[in-house]
């Protein structure tokens, strides 16, 4: 009886430990994956902007900072920086695409 109880408690304790460890590890993993995903998206957006000569000055810098943050385990910071870089990539690309036709400004008169 006593042994049974101890065993049951042990099993329960192990189960709890394993469970929480799994939850913890799962949370960590998800964060790292999220950061990696955000960085990959940012890099793709940067490249797309660069393909039309529309990359902005600091986009690459933000991606680098995001990578460093991810490496240091600061996944929230990494995601935030990567999102910023992705936005910049998107905006820089749109900026160039929206001007694909040369338009002489009205103040220059021929």
């Amino acid at each position: 009886m006593k042994i049974k109880t101890v065993l049951a408690m042990l099993v329960l304790a192990f189960g709890l430990l394993a469970g929480s460890a799994a939850v913890l590890a799962g949370g960590m993993k998800a964060d790292a994956a999220m950061a990696a995903d955000a960085i990959a998206k940012a890099e793709a957006a940067r490249k797309q902007a660069a393909s039309v000569n529309g990359e902005w000055r600091d986009t690459g810098k933000f991606i680098k900072q995001a990578q460093e943050a991810a490496k240091a385990g600061e996944h929230d910071k990494a995601v935030k920086l990567a999102k910023k870089a992705e936005q910049e990539g998107r905006l820089g690309y749109e900026q160039q695409v929206s001007q694909s036709e040369l338009k002489i400004p009205s103040y220059l008169k021929y």
Partner: peptide, 21 residues
């Protein structure tokens, strides 16, 4: 010429913005 008149960068200037307009 197109490069000259194209706005670029986060500040959205073309060469013409500053050196013509």
């Amino acid at each position: 010429k197109k490069f000259y008149f194209t706005r670029r960068g986060q500040l959205n200037f073309s060469c013409a913005t500053c050196h013509l307009q």
